[in-house]
Design a protein around this nucleic acid. Structure first.
Length: 480
DNA sequence: TGAAATGTTGGGGCG
DNA sequence: ACGCCCCAACATTTC
């Protein structure tokens, strides 16, 4: 009689779960475990919106497991201690988990693996959450990639991506007696105040919802993805990011479902464009794995001395609350606040404004996204912000400064997105919808209804370029 | 996965 | 018929 612990982390699914699959094939008794070990992941323990999602997702997973006659065991505390207690409590022989790649997590997991093996426990980790391991993909000089396109080409030279594993239809029972479990409520993941109604209305966490979201995307939006993905008022993107972050769906499942779409084969331009976004996710994890300091430090070292604005609390607050006076920005920031998510096109626009026009450090934007996004992911968030700030891998050149008016007119031409999130501008004619400060007479929104712009676009753009020039004259570009 | 400044072209109005 | 100007539309350069 042998017992294995399956340690769930951010792989909150039954389908295509290699650790679960191996454990149920090799052992007669299973303990299905989740440990709330957020404290040891500081400063990148999950933010408020992520904790809400995690709570919901754990609830779904526990239900799905209960349907198979098993139970999800919940623990709280340092992971190594929890595992040790459980191993001795149920005489477990093995611990299995699926790998994660955040620096603090890889370090901790390595330690746990060593310690448990030293005490004679079998430990195995599995690839489940990435298509390609960060260490598998190497440049010609066998270093990590820092540019996306050659990285993605190298990935595509790798072997075919295996088909996802089916969900088990039955599971080995728990040991007898089964281990104690905390109640989900006791983890304290749900916010004390009821601010999450908008998020709850916008999302349905869990593995089943992830599968139907994917199917709906493939049926309705995939064919027109290349254009549709840039229109924030339209359902043109997959909205799979939170499901992928928490592992409610695996990238392999997405890869194969998109590749098999009857109308849109793998090499159809629409499928390639979408799968390329999965590629960016891979790239973000690759970069974070090889450059573990990047959540706090620019990859390009010369940006450490960038002349950020000194006192920016008020401007930062205006940006966070969606009170900058630029409709596309404010609409995005309110979509984020209300639903825990923001359309990717708009993420780029709000990031550009914060970093370039307001000259507020990108780490402040990253911190706000970390706390408010339901898909907050250290790899993706870090790459995205460093890309926007121009200091990261394959970054946008610093002089690439988005003009929120132009971007609004280009990607939200009728103002549908702005009107949806800024009801105070609902009556404003389309002509002024992206520049209400130019409206005159009755259609002009009074300043107590909608604020005037917090910066002058032309002037702040010039200042940003000036700041960049001050970097250029610095000693040789020391990238690290 | 930019924007603005500057340069070029070509059609139409008009003396 | 012609040259001139205006300016939109596009292309190129620069940041």
């Amino acid at each position: 009689m042998s017992t294995a612990i399956v340690w769930f982390r951010r792989d909150l699914r039954l389908a295509d779960n290699p650790a679960l699959d191996a454990a149920r094939r090799r052992h007669d008794r299973l303990v299905l475990l989740y440990i709330d070990s957020a404290a040891e992941l500081a400063p990148w323990s999950p933010g408020a919106a992520s904790r809400w999602w995690l709570h919901q997702s754990l609830q779904r997973l526990a239900e799905d497991i209960a349907d198979l006659g098993q139970a999800l065991v919940l623990k709280h505390g340092a992971a190594l201690e929890c595992l040790r207690e459980l191993i001795s409590g149920c005489a477990a022989d093995a611990v299995y988990w699926n790998r994660l790649y955040d620096p603090a997590i890889t370090k901790r997991d390595r330690q746990i693996k060593d310690e448990l093996r030293a005490q004679g426990c079998e430990v195995e980790s599995f690839r489940a959450n990435l298509l390609f391991e960060p260490w598998e993909i190497r440049t010609g000089e066998s270093g990590p990639y820092r540019v996306f396109t050659p990285f993605w080409r190298a990935c595509q030279r790798e072997a075919e991506i295996p088909e996802p594993l089916p969900a088990p239809s039955k599971l080995p029972p728990p040991p007898d007696p089964g281990p104690d479990s905390l109640r989900l409520q006791a983890l304290g993941l749900m916010p004390a105040l009821h601010w999450y109604q908008g998020i709850a209305d916008a999302w349905r966490p869990g593995e089943q919802a992830a599968q139907s979201r994917l199917a709906e995307f493939c049926d309705n939006a995939l064919a027109d993805y290349r254009k549709g993905r840039d229109i924030p008022s339209a359902p043109g993107t997959s909205r799979l990011s939170p499901y992928l972050h928490f592992g409610e769906i695996s990238p392999r499942s997405v890869w194969h479902r998109v590749g098999q779409q009857s109308l849109v084969e793998r090499h159809h331009p629409a499928a390639e464009a979408f799968l390329r976004e999965l590629g960016w996710r891979e790239f973000a994890h690759h970069v974070l794995f090889h450059f573990p300091d990047t959540p706090a430090e620019p990859l390009n070292a010369k940006y450490r001395d960038f002349p950020w604005r000194d006192r920016h609390d008020e401007l930062l607050a205006a940006w966070q609350r969606g009170r900058t006076g630029f409709p596309i920005i404010d609409a995005g920031m309110r979509e984020l606040w209300e639903t825990g998510w923001m359309h990717n096109r708009v993420r780029m626009i709000v990031a550009s404004l914060l970093v370039k026009n307001l000259r507020i450090p990108w780490t402040k934007g990253a911190a706000w996204f970390w706390d408010t996004l339901v898909d907050a992911d250290l790899a993706n968030n870090t790459l995205g912000w460093q890309w926007s700030a121009g200091c990261g891998a394959d970054a946008a050149p610093y002089f690439r400064i988005f003009n929120p008016v132009r971007q609004g007119e280009k990607f939200d031409p009728d103002g549908d997105y702005v009107r949806r999130w800024l009801p105070e501008l609902a009556e404003l004619p389309t002509r002024w919808i992206h520049k209400p400060w130019q409206a005159r007479g009755a259609s002009a929104p009074p300043p107590n209804v909608y604020p005037a712009p917090v910066v002058d676009l032309a002037e702040s753009r010039k200042d940003a370029l000036e700041a960049l020039k001050s970097l250029k004259n610095r000693p040789p570009d020391q990238t690290r």
